[in-house]
């Protein structure tokens, strides 16, 4: 007979679980909206609750957790802003983590993934979908209040600028910041490692980077960067107005550092 599965809470999170009797261990979040899968993931009833398996191959944050990521993570009761939510795979897990007392504002601009996100939001009582472009903050500025955490997964050449601009507008001083860096979107003229370094340089003193991790082998050429707002983030905007010029996605022009 198969031995009984054992689950253990992970880190500070009350709603994140690890199944310890397997190698490598799998990670699970407490399902907020009943025993129904969101993207075909497995569900188990254990410890008197329904747990949804967090697939590292489908979710970048899931991959980071599978590789040992601990902080920062969404905590229970927090309010998060999620940019680039697509159809809500990762967003549903973040909604699980913040629980019924927290909330997640999910921004997505492509119509078809958004239609699926909207269906998900209808049964997730703490998820608020926003159909807008993360570059155009004024579109949702009036809808989204200041938040405890920002998660950015937009896969655009200017993803770092988008993240900083939103961090400046929505984060508070003790908030968390998570950025998924897709280096393939930033040109193939540099190695992923170099892209990571230039991104961290670009955030200098605006985001105090606490951790970064490569998401290999689940998501190739991706990094997760975690941190908190630095002192320079909230200084007047004029100091940071200088933005890099618009670059065509096809161009091979190296960005000046």
């Amino acid at each position: 007979m198969r031995p009984k599965d054992r689950y253990q809470r992970l880190g500070r999170s009350a709603r994140l679980w690890r199944r310890t009797n397997e190698e490598p261990p799998s990670y699970w979040t407490e399902a907020l909206a009943g025993a129904q899968p969101v993207y075909g993931e497995r569900l188990v009833h254990a410890e008197n609750r329904w747990l949804r398996r967090w697939e590292p191959n489908r979710s970048k944050l899931g991959a980071a957790i599978a590789k040992g990521w601990t902080e920062p993570l969404p905590q229970e009761g927090e309010r998060w802003l999620y940019l680039g939510a697509a159809s809500g795979t990762t967003a549903s897990h973040i909604a699980d983590l913040v629980g019924p007392a927290g909330s997640v504002y999910a921004v997505e601009k492509s119509l078809r993934p958004f239609a699926r996100l909207l269906r998900l939001a209808e049964r997730y009582p703490n998820l608020a979908p926003v159909l807008d472009d993360a570059r155009r903050i004024s579109g949702y500025l009036g809808l989204v209040p200041p938040v405890d955490g920002l998660y950015v997964d937009v896969a655009q050449p200017d993803q770092v600028e988008i993240a900083l601009e939103n961090a400046r507008t929505f984060l508070r001083e003790r908030s968390s910041f998570l950025l998924v860096l897709k280096t393939a979107s930033m040109g193939r003229d540099r190695s992923p490692r170099e892209h990571l370094e230039s991104a961290i340089d670009a955030m200098h003193r605006q985001i105090e980077v606490e951790e970064e991790i490569a998401l290999d082998p689940f998501h190739r050429k991706h990094y997760l960067i975690g941190g908190r707002p630095g002192r320079a983030l909230f200084r007047p905007v004029e100091a940071y107005r200088a933005r890099p010029p618009f670059r065509n996605r096809d161009s091979r022009v190296a960005r000046e550092s």
């Binding site: 119509l111 703490n126 809808l143």
Partner: peptide, 21 residues
Amino acid sequence: PFALERSTFLQDAHRRLTEAL
């Protein structure tokens, strides 16, 4: 309260999605 806000978001999202599509 978030529950109150959420219904605004859902309505808004539905409207914008239908318009765009």
